[in-house]
Design a protein around this nucleic acid. Sequence first.
DNA 1: CCGAATCCCTGATGATACTG
DNA 2: CAGTATCATCAGGGATTCGG
Lengths: 132, 132
Amino acid sequence: MSDGNTDVPHPDAHMVAAAVGGRLPGRVPTEEYEACPVTHVVRMLGDKWTLLVLMLLAERAHRFNELHRRVDGISQRMLTRTLRALEDDGLVARTVFPTVPPGVEYELTERGRELLVPLSALADWVVRDRAA
Amino acid sequence: MSDGNTDVPHPDAHMVAAAVGGRLPGRVPTEEYEACPVTHVVRMLGDKWTLLVLMLLAERAHRFNELHRRVDGISQRMLTRTLRALEDDGLVARTVFPTVPPGVEYELTERGRELLVPLSALADWVVRDRAA
DNA sequence: CCGAATCCCTGATGATACTG
DNA sequence: CAGTATCATCAGGGATTCGG
């Protein structure tokens, strides 16, 4: 940061600049890279079950056990953690129904559906480009 | 095309279908999800240093030590591994110059530059959407 | 200069058992 | 049904050293 220039709007200005085609500094500080929101999102998408859960929720809203059944091999623990992470990022909404027994529904938020657009474009490129 | 049967052309047909808006099976087999090329690419992008290395190479070709200097905190080992992974996926090209001492240059391949398009779109959305 | 080989450690993930 | 708690495991990543 600050190579003589005074106006740096965000701590992650460089990554942001990079994202849109700008230049990176001679040396990119670890904190800056780690703090970058783009880094955060890409890391989260790279987590073991995130992509699949997102795809299923893109289809329609699901109950917890419904997801658990559709995702072969996932543990209850990891499904909970994955959903929680998505919820914390505002991509998924959690709704509790005070029935007996209680039911919990997960669905994509508006932001989650928006994310699907560039994400689908990426997936689309991979498919077109012929399996990596 | 579809006389009621549910056969699949590729092992990863489901994920491919999902990528473009299709439906996923009632239960997604682990092998299928793990074998999916989209899963592979997203996971790779999520690796600790991949994004930053890609951004730097998007700027211009770099020598090994040049990258090592620009990426704060990366170990020689991880830089090698990251570059090798990108090379194996055909995103980065490695060129050895038989000078003394030997020099190695890394640059994006055509495929690598193509990946930057959807990837930039994703980064762009993140930035616009307001830092995650 | 570039990178392989080795050792080690922490964080991510899995298995199982237990509650509101 | 939908989690939480706990313990075990494993892979990603870092430090160091050696070789072409």
